[in-house]
Measured scan of single mutants.
Amino acid sequence: CHSECLGNCSQPDDPTKCVACRNFYLDGRCVETCPPPYYHFQDWRCVNFSFCQDLHHKCKNSRRQGCHQYVIHNNKCIPECPSGYTMNSSNLLCTPCLGPCPKVCHLLEGEKTIDSVTSAQELRGCTVINGSLIINIRGGNNLAAELEANLGLIEEISGYLKIRRSYALVSLSFFRKLRLIRGETLEIGNYSFYALDNQNLRQLWDWSKHNLTITQGKLFFHYNPKLCLSEIHKMEEVSGTKGRQERNDIALKTNGDQASCENELLKFSYIRTSFDKILLRWEPYWPPDFRDLLGFMLFYKEAPYQNVTEFDGQDACGSNSWTVVDIDPPLRSNDPKSQNHPGWLMRGLKPWTQYAIFVKTLVTFSDERRTYGAKSDIIYVQTDATNPSVPLDPISVSNSSSQIILKWKPPSDPNGNITHYLVFWERQAEDSELFELDYCLKGLKLPSRTWSPPFESEDSQKHNQSEYEDSAGECCSCPKTDSQILKELEESSFRKTFEDYLHNVVFVPRKT
Rank of each mutant, 00 (worst) to 15 (best):
C105E: 00
L108D: 00
T113V: 05
I114T: 01
T118R: 08
Q121A: 06
E122F: 03
N130W: 03
G131S: 04
S132K: 07
I134P: 00
G140E: 11
G140H: 15
A144I: 14
L147I: 09
N150V: 02
L153Y: 05
E155R: 14
I157E: 00
I157V: 05
Y160N: 10
S166Q: 06
A168I: 09
L172A: 08
S173K: 15
F175I: 13
R179G: 12
L180Y: 12
F193D: 01
F193E: 00
F193P: 01
L196D: 03
Q199M: 11
L201N: 01
K209V: 07
I214G: 01
T215H: 09
F220N: 07
F220M: 14
F221C: 14
K226A: 09
C228A: 05
H233V: 07
V238Y: 14
S239A: 13
T241F: 09
E246A: 04
R247V: 10
N248I: 04
D249S: 13
L252N: 06
K253H: 10
T254Q: 09
G256R: 05
A259G: 07
C261A: 15
L266K: 00
Y270R: 15
T273H: 07
S274G: 02
P284A: 00
P287L: 06
F290L: 06
R291T: 01
D292E: 03
L294E: 05
G295K: 07
M297K: 01
L298W: 02
F299Y: 15
K301A: 04
Q306S: 08
N307G: 03
D312I: 12
D312A: 14
G318P: 06
G318V: 08
S319Q: 12
W322D: 02
V324P: 08
V325M: 13
D326R: 01
D326F: 08
I327Y: 14
D328L: 10
P330F: 15
S333R: 08
S333I: 08
P336L: 11
S338P: 14
S338W: 15
P342V: 12
W344V: 08
M346C: 10
L349S: 03
L349N: 01
T353W: 09
T353Y: 08
T353K: 09
Q354V: 06
Y355K: 01
Y355M: 02
F358W: 04
V359L: 13
T361W: 04
V363P: 09
T364S: 03
T364N: 08
R369S: 05
T371M: 13
D377W: 09
V381H: 05
T386L: 04
P388S: 03
V390G: 07
P391S: 00
L392T: 05
D393F: 15
S398P: 05
S400H: 10
S402F: 07
K407F: 04
K409W: 10
